[in-house]
Design a protein around this nucleic acid. Sequence first.
RNA 1: GGAGAGGUGGCAGAGUGGCUGAAUGCGACGGUCUUGAAAACCGUUGAAGGAUUUAUUCCUUCCGGGGGUUCAAAUCCCUCCCUCUCCGCCA
Length: 421
Amino acid sequence: MIDLELFRKNPQIFKAEMDKRGLDIDVGTGMELDRERRELTYKVDQLRARKNEASLVIPGLAGAEKEKLISEMKSINVDLKTFEERLEKVEKDFNNHFSAYPNLSHETTPIGPDESGNVVVSYNLEKPEFDFQPRNHIELGTSLDILDEERATRISGSRFVFLKNEAVILEFALVQYVFNILTGKGFTPMLPPLMVKENAMYGTGFFPVERSQYYKTELDDLFLIGTSEVPLCAYHSNEFLEKESLPLKYAAFSSCFRREAGSYGKDMGGMFRVHQFDKVEMFIFACPDNSWEEYERLRGTLEEIMKGLGFHYRIMNMCTGDIGTPNAKKYDLEVWLPGQENYRELASCSHDTDFQSRRLNIKFKDGKNRFFVHTMNSTACAVGRTLLAIYENYQESDGSISVPEVLRPYAGGMRKIEKKR
RNA sequence: GGAGAGGUGGCAGAGUGGCUGAAUGCGACGGUCUUGAAAACCGUUGAAGGAUUUAUUCCUUCCGGGGGUUCAAAUCCCUCCCUCUCCGCCA
């Protein structure tokens, strides 16, 4: 949710934001709805005040005087009802309108229409060279019997996979490697609920804009999370945090579920874009005073994890046309996939300023004043995509895959994934 | 799934139609006392929205959610949700 006070003082800021993001939202409509809402609120409050006054007097009256006042109140109720109905309608429109407003993008977020406007910030390592034609992860995984797509499709449909054999060992090794780093940096490890109520989806900014991306249970109106950002952020909803306790840092492992609506035909096959994957996510509640420094540290943590795996990757500063509704700024980490000969998103790191905390009502007290906390989140490790990046980058000419050094201690010393006979 | 109990302020817990934003206790904050602390005593202590202002005053709403009865609802009625206990089932 946006800051309404700021909106009233400076609606042009929001108009400019719509332009930057290429959104077709009419700020003038918002101003009008806000005006109407306040007008009707005032009117309704006035009528209620008169009723309340009368309520104090009535018990002390008797006879004709009492009857007169009571009938007066009856007629006020008629007026009140019509105004209340109008207010209700306006508030509904008001909420619908403003819930579509995005966060204000940060000054360092590049302005651009779509992914073409994203800016490369940095590279890690050189592009790996192979003295043979590198295979993609599907071929590698299938031939090593660590990935079974065919049966998954038979059972669950497209965009599902079985991870098998060494892939399973490697997943757990990865997760442990990541948690080992994160707990050392003061992140509280969490295993969150994978299903949440609608309000959590709305509060974190995924609803209403991206509603069609998520699964809903049939009998209980619960939603499967697309990322543990949702339960982690909602964890402190409706709370006052202690300023001294900030930043609060959490790291969760969870499965994630995405319908991938509208991505038909894109990235078909393999485990790059699937309906269900596992992920370790970092989430931070920070004080606005230093949240931007905290955000850079968060990106640093993400990079530390990825550097440990020895990937060649680049950091992208995502432009206004490509960041999400709640984001003020977002970095993507794109890893080089030799099998695709392309950079692909492996992780992203977002700063949402007070957008989520306004919706979820997460504040802290500083003296007498109250402020909304800043929230930020970053992938620590998207397991599926990281595994496939390992397969493609650590493949050998004979079709085997060597296990990254840092994972070996967590994988029972496993050094290599080889073809079974 | 069956049976029962209950949802009130930071917590505990009163309150069955008007003077109740809500007794009382605890906690927290400020003060007195003290070398300091504790104890004791005194005082303060919820949120959201709006008007007017920019620093004040006023108004409205909120006792699980929604709806209803009434001039008036924490209190009566309907409905939904949630929590707890016991039984069953289950990892």
